[in-house]
Design a binder for these strands. Structure first.
Lengths: 110, 110
DNA sequence: ATTGTTCATCGCAAATGTACGATGATTATT
DNA sequence: AATAATCATCGTACATTTGCGATGAACAAT
C-alpha cells in the first residue's frame, strides 16, 4: 500500500467513527458487545460458550474492541472482567446517530 | 483462515449489522456517505475532488458500499449517479440505534 | 470516424484481518 | 510444591483490504 502525503486529510470525527465501525465489522464482535450491553455490566470469557471460536481468537477480538475504545478490561485474577467503555460508547452512539440522521424513508433518489 | 462447521452460528441481524459496520469502517467511505446524505440526493465522482485518492480507488470504495447495500448507482451516461439506498439506510439506522440503545452514561461498570 | 469524458475492472504489491494451536503468565486451590 | 483455571501472546497460514496505474467499455461531441 503506497501512502502519499495526502492521507492526513480526514477529520477527527471521520476517523473516530470509522475506527468504531471497523471494530463493529465482525459478527463475533457484535455478539460480544451485545452481551456486554445486555449483561447490565461486566463479563468475561463465558463468551467462549456463546461464540463458535477458539479462546485465542476470542481474546483477539476482545483486544480489538479494547483498542478501538469500545470496551475496557479489568483484571480480577484469575479472571478478567470486560465492560462497555461508557464514555466512548456514548461517543459512538452519537456519531452513528449523526451519520444516520437524514431520513430517506420517503422516496429519496434523484 | 480455517473454517469449521460452526461458523453458521450468527443471527441474521448480527450478520447484517456487521456487514454495514464493515462498510463504514474506512474514513473514505464515511466521507462518501456523508456527502451523499447531505447532498439531499444523488452524486457522482466529484468525490474525486474531496478524497485524496486515485479514481480507481474511489471506484472500489463505491463498489463496496454498493455491495453492502448502503448506496445504489444509477447509470446516466457518461456519468453515474450514486444515491443512498433508502431502505437499507433505514435498516442500518435501526440496527445501530438498537445496538447502542443501552445507556452507560452514568457510572456503569461493575 | 476520431476524440474526450466518465467510470469500472484488472493486475499487482503491500498491509491487515481472521483463525488456530501452543506456550506462558498469573493467581487460587490443593 | 504441584495442579488447575483463566486469559494473553506468539507464530503460522491463508484471506481480505487498500491502493495505484493501466486498460477497457460506453457514450457525447466534434
Amino acid at each position: 500500500m503506497k501512502r502519499t502525503a495526502q492521507d492526513i486529510e480526514y477529520s477527527q470525527d471521520t476517523l473516530t467513527i470509522s475506527k468504531f465501525a471497523k471494530a463493529l465489522g465482525h459478527p463475533a464482535r457484535i455478539i460480544i458487545l451485545k452481551h456486554l450491553s445486555n449483561q447490565s455490566c461486566c463479563f468475561t470469557g463465558d463468551l467462549l460458550e456463546v461464540l463458535p471460536l477458539a479462546q485465542s481468537t476470542v481474546s483477539q477480538h476482545l483486544k480489538e474492541l479494547k483498542e478501538a475504545g469500545l470496551i475496557e478490561g479489568e483484571v480480577n485474577p484469575p479472571k478478567v472482567k470486560y465492560c462497555i467503555h461508557s464514555e466512548n460508547w456514548q461517543l459512538a452512539k452519537g456519531l452513528f446517530a449523526d451519520l444516520f440522521k437524514e431520513d430517506f424513508s420517503k422516496i429519496s433518489c434523484c
